[in-house]
Design a protein around this nucleic acid. Sequence first.
RNA 1: GGCCCAUUCGUCUAUCGGUUAGGACGCAAGAUUUUCAUUCUUGAAAGAGCAGUUCGACUCUGCUAUGGGCUACCA
Length: 510
Amino acid sequence: MERPVRVRFAPSPTGPLHIGGVRTALYNYLFARQNGGTMILRIEDTDSTRLVPGAEDYINEALNWLGIGIDEGVRQGGAYGPYKQSERRDIYRVYVKQLLDAGRAYVAFDTPDELNARRAEVPNFQYDASTRLQMRNSLTMPADEVQRLIDEGTQYVVRFKIEPGRDVTVHDLIRGDVTVSSTILDDKVLYKSADDLPTYHLANIVDDHLMEVSHVIRGEEWLPSAPMHVLLYEAFGWSDTMPQWVHLPLLLKPDGKGKLSKRDGDRLGFPVFPLDWTDPNTGERSSGYREKGYLPQAVINFLALLGWNPGDDRELMSMDELIEAFSFEHCSKKGAKFDFEKGKWFNHEYISRMDDKELAEALVKYEGQNEVGEVLGQDLDYLTRAGAMVKTRANFIGELWPQVRFFFEAPTEYAEKDVRKRWKEDTPAILTDLITLLEGIEPFTAAATEPVVLGWIADHGYHLGNVMNAWRLTVVGECKGPHMFDIIELLGRDETIARLRRGISSIHNA
RNA sequence: GGCCCAUUCGUCUAUCGGUUAGGACGCAAGAUUUUCAUUCUUGAAAGAGCAGUUCGACUCUGCUAUGGGCUACCA
């Protein structure tokens, strides 16, 4: 009964990968790694009308950025390929025929228009045991006519013939047993001749079986069709190797009702996708976590805790720790409202704790090929020291540049409000003396300058806050930022004095 | 409408019959600080309702309410 763990993430390339999909992928990945199993990426492109160019690449790039490794897939290859459903037509045909031959499925010719008409006149119409004998299908038509229509190229579908009156139980690792009556299930379309492709239901079961998937870990939206999937395994005679079911709770809107959607991101101002995306058809742009300035580790950590917990108070966890601690037992049954503020906090923590050098590199990479990126990339050691001073003050990578900017560019403007508060009549004279003082301190380090300057201020009975902030004004441009003496150490004596001089001559408190 | 799933602070959650119902985010207050942040301390804040089972229920059962999902020749 114990089989090697093989799980799959099976997105449909109909657009950018949704953050909820990312979480599903993550849980699959964590479970696979924890059990020394295999993570499969299968592209479910059975709806040819909804394919979006670039979506498949996006999925790969997003998972790669997040560090969700794939063992088998279109790019990685593997012994169970092809891993794209549109390339598995030959396989599906065999299994459709098997079901047809066994009498577990039938051919139906009802057109979409006919079905819609039927739905319009019969409330709650359902194509099932109670109605299928009134429809145009191989159950009601002579065999030779069915064959003739098929030979003529008439479009048809194959429907799963569900026998009513049975209780079907899905054993779910998160929810326990879920039982429904087969009577309420409809005869789902399994295959459509129009594009010679199966629907999700058939392709899914066939692929999971052939790929020896041990655990199907997917979103809760699939729970209602799971009983039908169980019946499908039965119809194929694969019940003994049916995978374990795991239906994950959904990610919900932060405020209103319903599951998290693309619109919510636009409306509430946070990304719903891992990476930026521009729709090739409409040109519509959606922002992503990467471009927003998130660290992939932070996104992973945040997402992992949305619907799961380690069973103790830990919150900040690395991928390895998550793999170690993950379990379905601690998965929540309840949909989780998406809390963007918590996500920000995670990112803040990760930026604060990041190694200084790595952070500097991440910052250069984030700013990219533009002017800022060029300025920052010139001296990585300098940037590393500057970044270290401000990293606890940023929620996003993008907030770092405004905070280290003064290390690279001397201020040309001075915050009016701060000037008004701190620039007194005697300030120019005091700062001029400060220049003289600074010229004589060796070495020009925080450790050496701090006691000397502070002592000098005390000796003269100057107002500490006024002097320090006036000085800060000349160096930073505003009364914000890290410890002054750390700043001037990094800036160096010449630059510090130059900025003091410029400030003294150009700042005037009107 | 039908079917299924769920229900602890505003949010994410711990508790797997006996707790002053714990933690985190956010919020508020205070401390620290030459500034702004950070940091630290403290505080407010929860078992949807009603029945049952039990010596005892947030925990088990039922009903109600509420929320969510599904109900396509989409996944």
